[in-house]
Amino acid sequence: MVGVFLLLVGIPYGITSPSNVSRVVLSPVFWPSILAGLMVLIGLGLIASSVALKPAPPPEAAPIPAERGSWARLAAMAVLMVLYLFAIPRIGMVWASIPAFIAVGLLVRTQHRVISVVAAICVPLVLYAFFVHVAGVSIPQGHYVRLP
C-alpha cells in the first residue's frame, strides 16, 4: 500500500522533475519509481507467501506481548518526545533534559529513584560541559537560564 501510495501520490507530488530531461534513466523520478515498484512487488510476494504457506512464527520473531498499561506508557513517551523537542530551543537542552530523564526513569519503573534524580541533574550538566568546553559544540541554551 505504501508502494502504491508513493507511485500515485508521493512521487508525482513530492519530486520536482524538470521538463527538459533527455533520458528517462536520468530523471529524478526514475530511481524512486523503481523502488516504489519493487516495494509493491515485495508486498504482493509477502501476501502470496502468507496465503500459500502459513508457518508458525519462530519464538524469537514473535512480537513482544503487551501488558496492562504498555500502550499508555508508549503514548506517554510519544508525548514526552514531542514536549522535549519543543522545549530544547526554548528552555535549553540541559533544562529540558532533566525532567525528560526523570520522566523516562519513571516510565521504565526505576527502583533507584534517588540515584535517578541525581543522575538526571548530573548527566545533562556533564554532557553540556563536555560538548561545549571540550568538543566545541554549541548546545542550545534557551531564553531563560544560561550556563557558562
Binding site: 533534559s97 525528560a100 530523564f101 526513569g105 526505576t110 540515584i115 535517578s116 538526571a120 545533562p124 554532557l127
Partner: peptide, 20 residues
C-alpha cells in the same frame, strides 16, 4: 548501571549526540 538510570541516560546521550 541500573536500567532506571541507564535508559534515560542513553536517551539524553542520544539527544546530545544527535544534535552535535
Amino acid at each position: 548501571i541500573p536500567r532506571g538510570v541507564l535508559f534515560p541516560g542513553v536517551l539524553i546521550l542520544c539527544v546530545y549526540g544527535g544534535y552535535a
